[in-house]
Amino acid sequence: MTKELKPVTGRAWVFGNDVDTDQIIQGQYLTLLDYAEMAKHTFEIPRPVFTSKVKKNDIVIAGRNFGGGSSREEAPKVILQSGIRCVVAESFARIFYRNGFNVGLPLLIIPNVAKLVSDGETVTVDICEGTLSVRSSGDVLHGKSLPTRMLNLLKEGGAVAWYKQSVGKH
C-alpha cells in the first residue's frame, strides 16, 4: 500500500544548530519500554514546554546538524509520537536522517530555514515538492528534493512496510 504524501500545515517549533539526540530524548528515558510514556520527555531539555503545548501536525524546524550523537531511533520515534508530522532542517546528522525515514518521519533539508521561519508561525510543508510556505508572509522556501529511495520509504510507510513489500515476498 503506497501512501499519498499530502502537504502538512501546522505551527513551527524552531530550534537552533546541533540539537543532539540527548536534547531530543535524554538517555535516562531509553529503558522506558513504551513509546507513549517516553514521548512525554521529548525536547525536555531545550524546550520544557514542548510536550504540553505541541499539537498534532505541528512541524519542527531546526538549524544545522539536527539529531547528532547517539544512534537512538527513539529520537525520531518520540518526535512522531508527539504529533509532529515532519522535520525541516538546514542539515541532518547521518544516523538520524536514516532513522527518520525508517520510522516514517519525513525530513526535509532547506537552507537557512531556521533563520527564515519564526517560532509559532503557521507553515505548510510539501514533502514531494520540497517546499515550505509561510502563511503570514506568503514566502515559499525551496529545499532539496528527496532522494528517490527516501521518498519511496515514506510512500511505503517506513522501512518495515517496505521490507514486507519487497524483501519479504522472496
Binding site: 544512534s71 532513522n99 521490507y163
Partner: peptide, 29 residues
C-alpha cells in the same frame, strides 16, 4: 546498533552505527 561502532575502523574494517530498524533488517537479511 550503537553510534560508536566506528571504533572498529582501527582494525581496517568498514564499521558504522545504525539503529533499531536497520539492525532488525540486517538480522533478517
Amino acid at each position: 546498533s550503537d553510534s560508536h561502532s566506528t571504533t572498529y575502523g582501527a582494525f581496517n574494517a568498514f564499521s558504522t552505527g545504525l539503529a533499531a530498524t536497520d539492525s532488525a533488517l540486517i538480522l533478517a537479511t
